[in-house]
């Protein structure tokens, strides 16, 4: 896909992509109040990024989305999840929900659960997008950017 898809696809993508990513973030952050959660939200965010990449083509999006970025978010999300688990030791136990529970049905409730959801969303979204990047962009006999 050297130059992306047609003008219609590009225009619709321009209008829609940010809302898809926003919906993914909403599904992830409100996972403890409504159906959803980090895994689904991350997958939706990855879908939005993949839409942008397919519509505009490899050449235009090469500098926006790099392998280093995908790997960094993937590892960062995983480390954040483990860090939340280890922070439970502050209050006494592994994975203890140490933060205050707050009012139920609010965004700021349920202690560490929204934080874990955000970490998992970053991990899953970046991971799925990274796999797509690897399948779509890696070509035999070509060195990629972001690859040391």
């Amino acid at each position: 896909m050297p130059s992306g898809m047609s003008l219609i696809v590009k225009t619709v993508t321009r209008l829609v992509a940010s809302f898809i990513v926003l919906f993914g973030v909403y599904v992830a952050l409100y996972g403890h109040v409504s159906p959803g959660g980090g895994f689904a939200g991350g997958a939706i965010v990855a879908g939005g990024l993949i839409l942008v990449m397919l519509a505009f083509g490899r050449r235009q999006t090469r500098n926006m989305f790099t392998h280093g970025m995908a790997l960094g978010w993937d590892c960062g999300g995983a480390l954040a999840f483990v860090a939340i688990a280890l922070l439970g030791y502050l209050a006494g136990d592994f994975f203890l929900n140490f933060a205050g529970h707050g009012d139920p049905y609010r965004l700021a409730s349920a202690g560490t659960i929204p934080l874990s959801n955000a970490a998992i969303a970053a991990k899953v979204g970046a991971g799925l997008f990274g796999v797509f990047l690897a399948l779509a962009v890696f070509r035999p006999g070509q060195r990629q950017e972001g690859e040391q």
Binding site: G31, H32, P104
Partner: peptide, 14 residues
């Protein structure tokens, strides 16, 4: 115990 209204998340992440 968890403060999460969605019990699926309460089980999954707590």
């Amino acid at each position: 115990q968890t403060g999460a209204a969605n019990y699926v998340m309460a089980v999954l992440l707590d």
